[in-house]
Design a protein around this nucleic acid. Structure first.
Length: 812
RNA sequence: GCCGAAGUGGCGGAACGGCAGACGCGGCGGACUUAAACUCCGCUGCCCGCAAGGGCGUCAGGGUUCGACUCCCUGCUUCGGCACCA
């Protein structure tokens, strides 16, 4: 390289990314650079997973933002001698395809497959090293049959069940899981329509069984916000279940048990009324005849309540008295029973004891309906009888029980325990734990999903489809005219089936599964996508999982990322795998918004098409620009202003590599006084850059990684065309620069590497098969430290001192 | 309301408790060019000053420290999540 430079300094080839990128992509495909031998156990494995895309049609720059740094991670780890597996697939079931099919009158499968074909092409343009051999497409019967198979295993294990209860219902998507209802005004996560309640028989997965286990994140390197969100979502709450009984009156005999959940058993003496959820099973029985009309009207209103604006939690409380009383188990006092929508049917026992003195909501309710408020907890010195203007919630260590009979004067905590202990004696109390987390409702009244493999027989009831009859295929030719109602419900060919037990005429379940089922295990399938004898290959799963690094958006913190953990635990409990957690390290990259700061969407017209950028600047520039924009977890509005700077940087890399001796007209080359010192400066800079860049790659800090490569390149530019460019130091710096650039800008690095090899007369070898270089620790360590001398916080002077001095020596 | 994250030049953003503003964009000036583009070089936080130099600066206010963008407290703003969870 060094001697050839002088010969041809005036006319080096220009950097033309579009000329070199397709060539190297083809070459890598030929070489199988991306392909992973999953059976190779001589090298440490690195399972790198990126959330598989939904094939919505076109890729936008947001896909690149997720995927190209992920490819850089893959290449970085390969250069460390690891056996990296970076698979890709498509999340092909789901509503958008079905809607598109309805509006265009084409089959969702055909539409989806065309989209996938297009996305494959666009993904390849990134120059990313996805292992396409491992691809899965969830709408493929050979994939979704295993969804059905899992469902049957869960059914056998008692982890799947059918129940009728009020469910969240979206007019477009049908039923939704609880996580899929968003916001105060309760809208569908996917289509934004308002969600209502409906009573329906639906299939559930018993994920609440894992509530406690899901709270344990030990051994997982996950972002704190995601762990916090999941923890809050699971909502563990310790307290006690207390049993009240109904008092007899003229209209009913009483003595029914009403179980309530409370976190404050210490306030039991302060319970001045009781509130049931409107849907509580005892409402009907307890309602006094003269209250019936009002109660029924309230229940009906509560049922429809999601259609009414629920603008804030501090809207005025509503409720109705049933006209019956309950008996407080601790003191035998009669208190009135009300129903109110602020008590939720699905949480705890659907009933509460109301202690207005010590609960904000109960306080507001008591004020509104003029119910008594009795203080039972007070700080020392506070009056036990004064009128309260707000609920007293404080939980100070020195507060004492008052108005609580024999428990007066006890510290609140201790009093609570004593009350529970007392009532526990005759079975009227027990310490319990309640969770916010609900079982996962997986039934969807949609066509484009995995059919739930059960059959309804008049004689045998619910009959699971036998394993050998899987998959239950989704018919391709269906009539999906109309309002979007599930066409399976009128597809006779699909519906009619013989009962596997009695052989009689039976009907198939027409609901399909939540598509989050598909995404709850796809990374296990990547390990054996063709396997027909089972959903997953247990040996491969044992060897390759948990996933070492997962990358994707944070928007699924309590959806996909929670479902995935739940599903893994269910698979484990069915003996399918041994793992308990799917993803060891998680990174949530930010989201690229449109230039207007809104989510990119075709309808807003703010979508940035990457093809266009690639055509103009090349894939390497686009990749690097996305990494350079800012911290990867940050995202932000799309602003391409700086992309030229990144392109110029790559141009300079091109120039210092191919034309070290050139000097552009107009650039006053300075004479280098001391070549040795300059070379040493270059060497130190190169090794320090390597040290820092390695750490940045490891920590996924790509923006500073690129900045450091720019700095090194700028330094090389300074010595370009001087005698320094003839030194071995220069040559080494360029070599390190290319190696460090290789994971992020793989095409230009490969091109320049090959030219260097050719110039040196060495046989070609891909830069991506090179080992990541090692830095010289002596060069990285600072020889001297500049110590600022400050007086009263102001900089007065600086001294250069050798590193590693003791404090006493410095002070001297 | 509760939980979480974040507030640094004109802009995107850097900074183990130790020279705030790396790197890039934009801007200004210059070289090259018949000219322009490209490329290259220099300057570019704000204020005062011809200059040397000085003052002020990391949302606001307190605190810890020889020293705070960084740690602690209080408040404000923005973004994300939750939504009466007893």
């Amino acid at each position: 390289m060094t001697e050839s430079g002088t010969a041809d300094r005036t006319r080096i080839e220009r950097y033309e990314p579009t000329a070199i990128e397709p060539r190297w992509q083809a070459r890598w495909a030929e070489l199988g650079l991306h392909r992973t031998d999953l059976h190779d156990d001589r090298r440490p494995k690195f399972y790198l997973l990126t959330m598989y895309p939904y094939p919505s049609g076109d890729i936008h720059i947001g896909h690149w933002y997720i995927k190209t740094p992920t490819d850089a991670i893959a290449r970085f780890h390969r250069m460390h001698g690891e056996n990296v597996f970076l698979p890709i697939g498509f999340d092909a079931f789901g509503l958008p395809a079905e809607n598109a099919a309805i509006s265009r009158g084409i089959n969702p499968r055909a539409w989806q497959m065309a989209n996938i074909e297009n996305m494959r092409r666009q993904l390849r343009m990134m120059g990313a090293t996805f292992d396409w051999e491992a691809e899965v497409v969830t709408a493929d019967p050979e994939y979704y049959r295993w969804n059905q198979w899992f469902f049957l295993r869960f059914l056998e294990a008692g982890l799947a069940y059918r129940a009728t209860s009020p469910v969240d219902w979206c007019p477009n998507d049908g039923t939704l899981a609880r996580e899929q209802v968003e916001g105060v005004d309760r809208r569908c996560w996917r289509c934004g329509a308002k969600v209502e309640k409906r009573d329906l028989a639906q299939w559930y997965l018993k994920v609440t069984k894992y509530a406690d286990e899901l709270l344990d994140f030990s051994g997982l390197d996950w972002p704190e916000p995601v762990k916090t969100m999941q923890t809050n979502w699971i909502g563990r709450s310790e307290g006690a279940e207390l049993v009240f009984t109904t008092a007899p009156d003229d209209h009913q005999p009483g003595n029914d048990e009403v179980r309530i959940f409370t976190t404050r058993p210490d306030t039991l003496f302060g319970a001045t009324f009781m509130v049931l959820a409107p849907e509580h099973p005892l409402v009907e029985k307890l309602t006094r005849p003269d209250r019936r009309a009002e109660v029924e009207a309230y229940v009906a209103q509560a049922r429809a309540e999601t259609e009414i604006e629920r603008l804030s939690t501090d809207r005025e409380k509503t409720g109705v008295a049933l006209g019956a009383d309950a008996i407080n188990p601790i003191n035998g006092e009669r208190i009135p029973i009300w129903i109110a929508d602020y008590v939720l049917g699905g949480y705890g026992t659907g009933a509460i004891m109301a202690v207005p003195a010590h609960d904000e909501r109960d306080f507001a309710f008591a004020r509104r309906f003029e119910l008594p408020i009795l203080r039972v907890v007070a700080a020392p010195g506070a009056s036990a009888v004064d009128a309260m203007t707000e609920a007293y919630l404080a939980h100070a260590a020195d507060e004492r029980l008052v108005n609580s009979g024999p428990y007066d004067g006890m510290p609140a905590d201790e009093g609570g325990r004593a009350i529970v202990a007392k009532l526990a004696g005759d079975g009227r109390a027990k310490a319990t734990v309640t969770y916010r987390l609900r079982d996962w409702l997986i039934s969807r009244q949609r066509y484009w999903g995995t059919p739930i493999p059960v059959i309804y027989c008049d004689r045998d009831g619910i009959v699971p489809v036998p394993d050998e009859d899987l998959p239950v295929r989704l018919p391709d030719e269906v009539d999906y005219r109309g309002s979007g109602e599930n066409p399976l419900t009128r597809d006779e060919g699909f519906l009619r089936v013989d009962c596997p037990r009695c052989g009689g005429t039976a009907r198939r379940e027409t609901d399909t599964m939540d598509t989050f089922i598909d995404s709850s295990w796809y990374w296990y399938r990547y390990l054996s996508p063709e396997r027909s004898s089972g959903a997953v290959d247990p040996d491969m799963v044992a060897r390759w999982t948990p996933v070492d690094q997962y990358t994707g958006g944070a928007e699924h913190a309590v959806m996909h990322l929670l479902y995935a953990r739940e599903f893994t635990k269910m698979m484990r409990d069915c003996g399918i795998i041994e793992q308990s957690e799917p993803f060891r390290r998680l990174f949530n990259q930010g989201q690229i918004l449109g230039a207007d700061g809104e989510r990119m969407s075709k309808s807003r017209g703010n979508v940035q098409d990457p093809d266009e950028l690639v055509e103009r600047h090349g894939a390497d520039t686009v990749r690097l620009f996305l990494m350079f924009m800012g911290p990867w977890d940050q995202g932000g509005p799309w602003n391409p202003t700086g992309i030229g700077g990144v392109h110029r940087f790559l141009n300079r890399v091109w120039t210092v590599t191919l034309d070290p001796h050139g000097r552009p007209a107009g650039d006053p080359a300075e004479a280098v006084a001391d070549v040795g010192a300059a070379g040493r400066e270059l060497r130190i800079a190169a090794h320090r850059t390597l040290h820092a860049v390695s750490a940045d790659y490891q920590g996924l800090r790509f923006n500073t990684m690129v900045a450091k490569l720019m700095e090194l390149t700028n330094l090389l530019m300074r010595y370009r065309g001087t005698v320094v460019a003839d030194t071995a130091d220069w040559d080494e710096a360029v070599r390190l620069l290319l190696l460090m650039l290789a994971p992020s800008a793989p095409h230009i690095a490969e091109e320049l590497w090959s030219r260097r090899l050719a110039a040196a007369g060495e046989p070609w070898r891909s830069i991506h098969a090179e080992r990541w270089p090692e830095w010289d620790a002596a060069l990285v360590a600072a020889r001297t430290v500049e110590l600022p001398i400050q007086v009263n916080g102001k900089l007065r002077d600086k001294v250069e001192l050798p590193a590693g001095l003791s404090q006493a020596e410095i002070e001297r």
